[in-house]
Computed example of a mutant assay.
Amino acid sequence: MKLIDDWKKCHRLYSQRINAVGMALCSTYGFMYDSIRDVLPPKYLALLVAVVFLAGFGLRLVKQGSEDGDAENAA
């Protein structure tokens, strides 16, 4: 397995940020208030998380950062 160039800056990539949102949705659903869980039932949460992770896959295909490989402007 080979890491991507500038792997230490991966937290700045769009794909990593969207995957973090998906992980946050998955891990915090049980702790949400009942009123929020009533609005967002588990089947819709599963659909939302699937869309978020698919967006992460798609964003991984998009060039992120400047021409010299610097991901600083990818925010």
Rank of each mutant, 00 (worst) to 15 (best):
I4Q: 09
K8G: 11
Q16H: 14
S35F: 07
C10Q: 15
M32F: 02
L13G: 03
P41Q: 04
I18N: 06
I36L: 08
T28C: 00
H11Q: 14
Y29H: 04
K9A: 15
H11G: 11
I18D: 06
M23K: 14
G30Q: 03
A24Q: 12
V39D: 02
W7Q: 09
D6Q: 14
V39R: 01
Y29N: 01
Y14D: 11
L13S: 10
V21M: 06
D5K: 13
L25I: 09
L40M: 04
S15F: 06
Q16C: 14
W7N: 12
H11N: 11
F31G: 11
A24E: 09
D38K: 04
R12P: 09
R17F: 06
M23V: 15
C26E: 14
M32I: 05
L40R: 00
L40Q: 00
D38C: 08
T28E: 01
S15H: 09
P42Y: 02
G22N: 06
P41G: 04
L40C: 01
V39A: 03
L40W: 00
M23T: 15
K8L: 10
Y29R: 03
R37N: 02
G22H: 05
C10H: 14
Y33T: 10
T28H: 04
R12E: 10
S35Q: 08
D38A: 10
P42E: 03
V21K: 07
Q16F: 13
P41I: 00
S27L: 08
F31H: 10
C26A: 14
S35W: 03
L25C: 06
T28A: 00
L13Q: 08
D38T: 07
K8D: 11
R17I: 07
D38E: 04
C10M: 15
D34R: 08
L13K: 10
P42Q: 05
K8S: 11
I4E: 09
D38G: 05
V21Q: 06
N19D: 10
I36Y: 00
M32C: 07
C10E: 14
Q16S: 14
Q16W: 14
